[in-house]
Amino acid sequence: MMQRRKFIKALFAASALALLPFRTFAAMWNTSAFQATKLQEAMAALQITNISPSNDIQMVAPDKAENGAVVQIEVTSRISNTESIAIFVENNPTALIANFLFGEGADGFVVTRIKMAETSDVLAVIKSGNRYFSAKKRVEVLENGCG
């Protein structure tokens, strides 16, 4: 187990070196953020603080999801200098679903498909400099998608 961890770390370190001239990319999976079961813990692990709700974030998600295994989420941020979009599902076994980090030339926009264990708010948190902005949408889940 430790060896694999070391190997993966070395692998990521090597790829981080290869990507050196680029900004903001972590190139390292944030273990504590993804393993956190509570929303607040997951946010703390990503160092998200002082979130302001924003109307400049648009989230498209279904009102009702027949099957929680596949719920399509679209997030558009019109906030200038959107560095990343993190997606959380408060009532999932682990709250952090994904964190998308944008480089130069990439818009603050993403579409992805997520799993939802039960009815929950889906929360998008945008990072811009040292500031965080959020938008959320309630998705009613008719059939558990986490198994």
């Binding site: 719920v71 599902v89 076994p93 679903i97 994904a98 964190n99 980090l101 579409v111 799993k115």
Partner: peptide, 17 residues
Amino acid sequence: LEAQWGTGISKNPYLTF
């Protein structure tokens, strides 16, 4: 782009950017 994913991304992941 870099995406960090947990177990909450659906099977056969789909992504648009």
